[in-house]
Design a protein around this nucleic acid. Sequence first.
DNA 1: GTGGTCTAGACCACC
DNA 2: GTGGTCTAGACCACA
Lengths: 123, 123, 123, 123
Amino acid sequence: MEFKKSLSIFEQIGMSVQENIINQDWQEGERIPSVRDYATSIQVNPNTVMRTYTLLQDQGILENRRGIGFFVALGAKQKTVQHRKDQFAEEFLPELFKNMDQLEINWDEMKNYYQNWKNQKIS
Amino acid sequence: MEFKKSLSIFEQIGMSVQENIINQDWQEGERIPSVRDYATSIQVNPNTVMRTYTLLQDQGILENRRGIGFFVALGAKQKTVQHRKDQFAEEFLPELFKNMDQLEINWDEMKNYYQNWKNQKIS
Amino acid sequence: MEFKKSLSIFEQIGMSVQENIINQDWQEGERIPSVRDYATSIQVNPNTVMRTYTLLQDQGILENRRGIGFFVALGAKQKTVQHRKDQFAEEFLPELFKNMDQLEINWDEMKNYYQNWKNQKIS
Amino acid sequence: MEFKKSLSIFEQIGMSVQENIINQDWQEGERIPSVRDYATSIQVNPNTVMRTYTLLQDQGILENRRGIGFFVALGAKQKTVQHRKDQFAEEFLPELFKNMDQLEINWDEMKNYYQNWKNQKIS
DNA sequence: GTGGTCTAGACCACC
DNA sequence: GTGGTCTAGACCACA
């Protein structure tokens, strides 16, 4: 797995876990990969994965059954979506709009960028 | 001057300098405040301002005349805008579009958010 | 480690690092000494080594894995040599040729000097 | 006049003055431009030119007649050439040879560079 | 343990 | 006065 340098690794792992939950690759109630397995599979220190898991546990998205492993909490998907939506609206959008104003980018340009991104994603 | 904790101080100073150039508060070819002066005025260590200035110098936005001071480079405004626009398109937008897809937000909602933000900004 | 006063210390450290890479004392992909370790070993402030490392990182000669350390980038040797060769051709040689013309020194004299230098180096 | 950042301005002016003497644009015994005139003509602080003149005076290349101005000393040309030749042999050449060895550049390549430089100079 | 940032204070060459 | 470098020491987040 490749990481951007702009965000800490454990947070990037968190994003990835959340996506797995949203996409229902990891179903609610299901057991997820152990800290050690996941760590080796993405070439990362187990401590780092541990940090991610406990963070998500504190947020009520994961649950830990001692001696067994981590599980996707019930209602995790809905909670995750809400969480990200809040974050999106409060942190991301203001930044976006500020940039649009300063760089004088209008909605048509935005939609243009969007189409490019979609096409590029497919290829 | 107040700083957010999320971004390093010297980078925030850099943003601020760039805005001064874009707004033409600091004209191209003009001498900008000396490292020491600017540092005291924004209550920061001179080394920190120095770091910002030399960084912008490397980017071709500032120039330096020995023993005299730093100056806004010719073409700095255009370069700054382009710089930011590239960064916006390459780092910010993909993130945005990914979120829009995953959170199922369409353009009408976006414009709605934008209006709210504008109104909120005025009040 | 001893330093000349004519060049800044952090640049001299940079030269030294590059030589280590060219000589393959530090292999590509290998981890290099931590900032603190290297600093104490050459009797210099950690900040100074830090400055060197980040500079070389910007030049694509070193890489950084978060919380682990600095590594010699892949292709670093070739890049370093090219880097130096360019600099040599663009900054050093014109100066040389200008002097040769003005001081009326021909190639035979040059080769003579070269032999003397080689002999002196051995003794 | 344009200056490189690698060398201090007063030294670069010194080089330029010496070239004028070697090329006999400034003849021995002749009065040279006043500090103020020269300074304005090359867009530099008079103090800087003064520093150059007094330095060359200390080296016996210029002479100062109080209230009148600076003059090219008798024997200045020969002295200048010798001065530069010494500097060339002691400081410049060792650096050159070290680079040639490390970058594995042979005499044929050098002559090649030389031809390119000559052609480029004409165009 | 690692890098990364920031401060305080000193010293230098240069203009 | 200006930039530029270096040190010493502190604190932080991350792995």
